[in-house]
Structure formats: C-alpha cells, structure tokens
Design a binder for these strands. Structure first.
Length: 424
RNA sequence: GGAGAGAUGCCAGAGUGGUUGAAUGGGAUGGUCUCGAAAACCGUUUUCCGGCUUGUUCGGAACGAGGGUUCGAAUCCCUCUCUCUCCGCCA
C-alpha cells in the first residue's frame, strides 16, 4: 500500500510512475485517493473539536459533582448529551471515509522505480544479462515430461489419482533430486548469512493482507474455508509476516531469512497447451530468500540478491538470462523486479525460475514494519525477496539439458547431496 | 472435545466510574558523583491521526478486538479472539 504522505507530496511523480505500468486511469486513481483523504481530514477536524469541548464539559461536571453541586451540572449534562449525537454521526462518517480510503489504496499498485522501463507486457522487458551458451541437443532429445516417464522418477498420473492435475509424485531418484536441491539451496543461503526459517505453510487472512496477496488475489490461493486459512503461494508470505507490527532494533538490521516450503497455487484460468509437465504446477517446492533493509541500502541489496541467485544457477551449470521487468509485467507490490530464466534445451524455451523484487515500503506500510533511526525517528523499512530457487523448472532444465544416451548427468555441485551422479 | 482462570506500557504488576497515558518495581537511556566503574541520586522512556504559528506545540484516539450503558469507562454489561491450567484424545 502506498504511503498517503507520498501521494500528497509527490502527486505528479506517483502518477507518472503508475503510468509506466500501462495503467490508463493512474491520474484518476491518485486523485480519488487525495479526495477521500481530504474529506477524511475535514471530518476528523470537526469531530476532534467537538470532542475537545465535550471532554472539557465532562470534566466540569465531574468537578461539580465532587463539590456536591449536582444541581448546577444539570444544564451542562444536557449540553453534552446533545453533542453526543453529533459526535456519533461524525464518527460513523469518519469511519466510512477511512474505510473507503483504505479500500481504494489497496487497489493502487506500487510505483515502479526510476530505472524500470515503461511497457505493457513481457515484450517490453529488458534483457540485461546472459550467461552460458544455449545447449545444442540432438534431434531426438526428449522434453522433460518424456524423460520423467523414461526413468520413472516423476509420476503425474499417480498424483492425479490421489489429488488432481498439477500435483506430481516424485519417486526414487526424482525424490532424492528434490531433496538434494533443497539442501543445496539452503546450505548456500546459510553460507551467505541467511537465517533458516521453517514457517507454517498456511496463513491467516491478516497475513494475506500484510504482503499484498489480499484483497484481489484470493482466487489464486487455496482457501481452507472451515478454518479461514490460506495455503501459502510462496514462503514470502509467512516469512515477511513474521515482522508484521514489529519495531525492529537498528542493531538487528539487516534481516536475512531463508525458508524452504511447498508452495500452492490454484493457477485458475492459466492452463494452456504450452503448460506441460513441470512448467506449471499446483504444488511445488521453493526456497525463498527474504531481506529487510533500510531504505538507503535496498537497491544495493537487490543487486546482491540477484548476484547470489545467479551464482546458484552458474554452479548448477545452467544457461540463463536476466530480465529487468517493465512496468506492465511487474507484480502489483513490486517497485523493481528482475526475473531469472533458464534455458530448457528440449523445449527450446526460457523458463522463469526466480523473481527478485524490491518492494520498498509498499509491504512495510501495510505490515507496520519499522525501525527507529539514530535521530529517534520512526521509519518504514524496505522488504525484498527472491526465489533461490523454485525447483520444478530447475529440474526440467537439468533433465533436458543434461540428457545423454546413458542417462541424465547430475551437476557436480549436487553430487554430495544426491549421492548419485547419473539418473539412468 | 469437557471444566476453570486470565488478557493493562519494553517486562513484571497495581488500578473505589470523574486530571489514569495510566501507581509501583525492573529494564533501557541521559545526567550528577568517580581516575574509571559499581552504588546512590535526579531526569527521560508508547503509538496512531489531525491542526497550525512545524514547536522539548495544540487537539483527538488507543489498557486483547468489536459493540453497549453513562455527561464521563482500564474500571459496569454483551459478543468475539487469544493465552494459561486440569481432564480426555493423540503424531
């Protein structure tokens, strides 16, 4: 949620920023917020004055009663009673303005950072870096959904039987490869100073609002209605919400957390012909890194986090490219996002395996996540997160790119975690 | 699942319906003292919203949450949430 003070003080910049997201009604969104805000303030002003007078009168009544002059208090009591009705209706009005304002602010996405290019969609993203060479596979190279059958390591039919489409079952070396990747990612993160967190994989409604999944995206989460819980779409939600309503000691900054969790996504309406095999699932595993930083260092941190994720891909010997997302392709909450995509040789496609974002104060404002600086001033912190990494597409790329006549070779760096070097 | 107890500031813990934003103790922090430290003593110590004369300023709000009674509620009433203890069940 954007900070109202910023909308007030930098109206033009906010509008211009939102327009980079290809929002046509940016100006109207901002001005409606400003209008609701000024109505709210006006109402509060009158209300406060009325309450101040009524507080004074009540105090006087108290003094008169103490002094045993109950008779003299009668007329004052009448006056206060009259004001009470006005106060009540003004309070209702104020609450309604506040409610409308909050609901409205929930609908305004974050303002993209200066470096973010304007654009409507994926075509306008900037390819800022490429690593490795595109693998040249023989003509009979198999896509991963064939390879998993050939080696019997991941079974979609079994998953379909016990749960539904998009819930694969990992077997034997397939399961071990999952476990190895998770351990590899967690160990690497720990070496970088991230504290491992194992959070619940369901969250309550307040947490959904805290990180911006709610309102709007409830259709994308599995909802346990009987208990008012949501299955998490990413570890970002529980981990970032650990710091909801928290005033952080400056000495404890920066905060660096890493967590492995299964992730659940309904992916309603996003199934198409090109979404096969592991490319898109309802449940998948992911290791997520989260950082909480002071405003002045958050962009350096964004670079640092990208560099870390890129390092993982390089260790896994996967060719990748790094995209700076344009305004129109960025998530609702983000101020700046880099996507990392690996190349899957048999599908001949780039697959997004990580998305690293700086949310600036957008989440912190909702979360009330703050710290007190050296001057004793309370300030919102910046939140950042990134996948490091999402498993299924990494597995897909490893399977496709590393296939040989004798089986699939496992990247060296994983050997100590898998205990085997080849899937055959 | 059954029975009971409770929820107050950074923590512990008071609080007859009328200067209680809140006693007291602890912690933290500034100062005095000291060569330095401890002790002692004296201060300070929540957050949100609004106004303007942007100030060591004025007003409003907050004692789990939401309602109600009252001129006035931390204090009385109702609903909800959560925590703890005991019993039952159980990985």
């Amino acid at each position: 949620m954007l900070q109202l003070t910023i909308i007030r003080e930098q109206r033009q910049q906010v509008i211009a920023g939102l327009q980079k997201r290809n929002l046509k009604d940016a100006e109207q969104l901002v001005d409606t917020a400003l209008q609701l805000d000024s109505q709210r303030r006006e109402t509060q002003k009158t209300l406060d004055e009325l309450k101040a007078q009524s507080n004074i009168d009540s105090k006087k009544i108290g003094e008169l009663m103490k002094a045993g002059k109950a008779g003299e208090a009668t007329s004052l009591r009448q006056a206060v009673a009259n004001d009470k009705d006005k106060i009540k209706s003004l309070e209702t009005e104020l609450t309604s303005f506040e409610e409308k304002l909050t609901q409205h602010l929930y609908r305004i996405p974050n303002v993209p950072a200066e470096k973010v290019p304007a654009g409507a969609g994926a075509d306008d993203n900037l390819n800022v870096y490429e690593y490795g060479s595109i693998p040249t596979l023989s003509d009979d190279a198999l896509p991963h959904w064939e390879l998993i059958k050939k080696y019997d390591i991941i079974d979609f039919d079994l998953g379909n039987k016990i749960a539904g489409a998009g819930f694969p079952v990992y077997k034997g070396k397939g399961a071990k490869l999952q476990r190895a990747l998770i351990n590899f990612f967690l160990s690497e993160a720990e070496k970088q100073g991230y504290l491992e967190i194992q959070p619940p994989i369901v969250v309550n409604e307040a947490s959904g609002y805290g990180t911006g999944q709610l309102p709007d995206k409830e259709g994308q989460m599995f909802h346990v209605t009987a208990d008012a819980l949501y299955l998490i779409p990413t570890a970002e939600v529980p981990i970032t919400n650990l710091y909801r309503d928290v005033m952080i000691q400056e000495d404890n900054l920066p905060i660096k957390n890493v967590g492995y969790t299964p992730c659940f996504r309904r992916e309603a309406g996003s199934w198409g012909a090109h979404v096969r095999g592991l490319n898109r699932l309802h449940q998948f595993d992911k290791v997520e890194i989260v950082q909480i930083r002071k405003a002045e260092e958050s962009y350096a941190t964004l670079d640092e986090m990208c560099a870390y994720v890129q390092g993982l891909l390089e260790k896994l010997e996967l060719p990748y490219r790094k995209l700076l997302l344009c305004g129109g392709d960025m998530g609702f909450n983000s101020a700046m996002t880099y996507d990392l995509e690996v190349y899957a040789g048999a599908q001949k496609r780039w697959l997004e395996v990580s998305s690293v974002s700086n949310f600036e104060t957008f989440q912190a404002n909702r979360l009330k996540l703050r710290y007190k600086n050296k001057e004793g001033k309370t300030q919102l912190l910046h939140t950042l997160n990134g996948s490091a990494l999402a498993l299924p597409r990494i597995v897909a790329a490893i399977l496709e790119n590393n296939q040989t006549k004798d089986g699939i070779t496992i990247p060296k760096v994983l050997w100590e975690y898998t205990g085997f070097k080849v899937i055959s």
